[in-house]
Design a protein around this nucleic acid. Structure first.
Lengths: 197, 197
DNA sequence: CGGTCTCTTGACGGAGTTCAAAGCTAGTGG
DNA sequence: CCACTAGCTTTGAACTCCGTCAAGAGACCG
């Protein structure tokens, strides 16, 4: 068995300085759970009551429209927090589902427990302010890439930016994330430099 | 002269409960300044050292690419915070400029002062966590609209969602914000319901 | 091995861009 | 208070990226 608390602790202390008592307290409020490949962590339309810290594995956050078309908004891997933010914050039905792409182990924390922890560990408030800032910056950067680059460059960008990631995720999911049809992504790939030729 | 501190105070207490001493302290660290129409508040490539609380007026946040094409990412009006978040948080050159569209009055706060305030007024840490969450949700919602709706519906959406806003902003800026060419937006407008006819 | 899931190929069409030019409008100075 | 100019909006034609549909070819798993 892995040292789960150790992983959480060293993650928390990468950017701040929590005492062992604080890490213990936080850990005591979290629940470890493993999801099989393709298991659903949160259903669309469900109210998100938890945030998840990914210990191991890979998940996707996606929306399914009336026609049944899925759009992936986010992937998350080891040492990332994932949640349906709007649903979690506003207690409203989630526009997104969260699903394990690989077998995934998470630590989950309930909203009410997190709010208690904010009070008993004031530093945590700052920690989550920073997490939220990072999420915001990640989205802004993603939008920049979408604005500035045509689809074939978005693909290169994605492949280059997270090495090894493209191997863990099926092509059609990358296409969905990049907002390209799977057919067109296939065309892009087999035509690796559309500027030459 | 307007009651600036009063405006700040009642804004702050819309979602939380700050004492007069706390509002006074915060206000004492902020600087009021008025920008003329078209005045630049933050230049692209400059490092953002301040966050701005808009007392009155209207600004845009935009990026100019190598070809000189401007892309507007955000508008902000009275009682909104605006900043180049990534630049402010990471002390890196801003990818965005901030400019007044109308004559605009702001209260600005320096990063160092804000960090001191987080310590002397712990509630403020929570306050800005929530502000950041709201900014994040706003971007996520904007992205949802972009994914789900074609350009003419994005336009309707925009016009309907912030009444009176379309009158304050020139058309070509709305086009830029909605990621539509000004020519095509013009076509959309003179063809108000493309479903009929 | 059989079936389901994934990736590829090609034809076609349409939403939206680009370029160029003309019409408006509103602010400015004389 | 008018005339001019600069900025904004409209129009139209040509073009292109990329989506959709349909069908086939692999590939992986039980």
């Amino acid at each position: 068995m892995k040292d789960t608390k150790g992983q959480l602790g060293s993650y928390l202390n990468r950017s701040m300085n929590f005492g062992t008592g604080e890490v213990d307290l936080m850990f005591s409020k979290m629940t470890k759970r493993t999801y099989a490949k393709k298991a659903v962590i949160l259903n669309q339309e469900e109210i998100a009551t938890h945030r998840y810290f990914i210990l191991e594995g890979l998940v996707r956050v996606f929306h399914t429209n009336e026609k049944g078309i899925e759009t992936i908004n986010q992937f998350a891997i080891e040492n990332w927090w994932v949640a349906s933010v709007e649903s979690f914050v506003e207690h409203t039905p989630s526009h997104y589902a969260i699903q394990a792409i690989e077998k995934t182990t998470v630590l989950s924390i309930a909203k009410a427990d997190l709010e208690e922890l904010y009070i008993s560990i004031p530093k945590l408030e700052r920690f989550f302010r920073k997490i939220t800032e990072r999420m915001l910056m990640a989205i802004i950067r993603k939008n920049e890439v979408f604005m500035k680059y045509p689809s074939y460059e978005r693909y290169r960008f994605f492949v280059d930016s997270v090495p090894g990631f493209a191997q863990r995720v099926p092509q059609y999911m990358i296409a969905s994330y990049l907002d390209i049809s799977p057919e067109y992504l296939s065309e892009i790939r087999n035509n690796s430099d559309p500027m030459i030729s």
